[in-house]
Design a protein around this nucleic acid. Sequence first.
DNA 1: ATGTGACTGTTAGTCCGTC
DNA 2: AGACGGACTAACAGTCACA
Lengths: 67, 67
Amino acid sequence: MDICKRLGENVRRYRKEKGWSQEAFAHEADIHRTYISDIERGARNPTITIIEKLARPLGVTASQLLE
Amino acid sequence: MDICKRLGENVRRYRKEKGWSQEAFAHEADIHRTYISDIERGARNPTITIIEKLARPLGVTASQLLE
DNA sequence: ATGTGACTGTTAGTCCGTC
DNA sequence: AGACGGACTAACAGTCACA
């Protein structure tokens, strides 16, 4: 399983647990909406600083997003 | 604690557990030795595909490198 | 509310070295 | 053995219009 896809699935799952749209989450994480879309589809290969920006509003660790 | 520094410390610890020099590890991971040096010093912001390339020869998961 | 192609400036990542 | 610099190319960060 590709690590980018795994990250995407994790982000999407945690985001939905929060009841957020991509747009709302993008605002919380201070990341562009379309970038979130790309991440969730595994279409990007982000850096670890992006992983951390995603993790914080979701209330999880960067490590958890890669599990 | 900066996530880049945390990654660096984890990589260094796991590498030493294997008894590898940076150069030997670089060869195992198929990553340039100077890049390994940068990573361990927390001077780089790598992508998740690099995290995975680092994790495999160390016998750990990408997730563990960010813990 | 989300997926996607395209674009530009910036940086990730490689490779040459020296200390 | 490892830190660190310079220079280079490939790829990412960040954004937009449109579907």
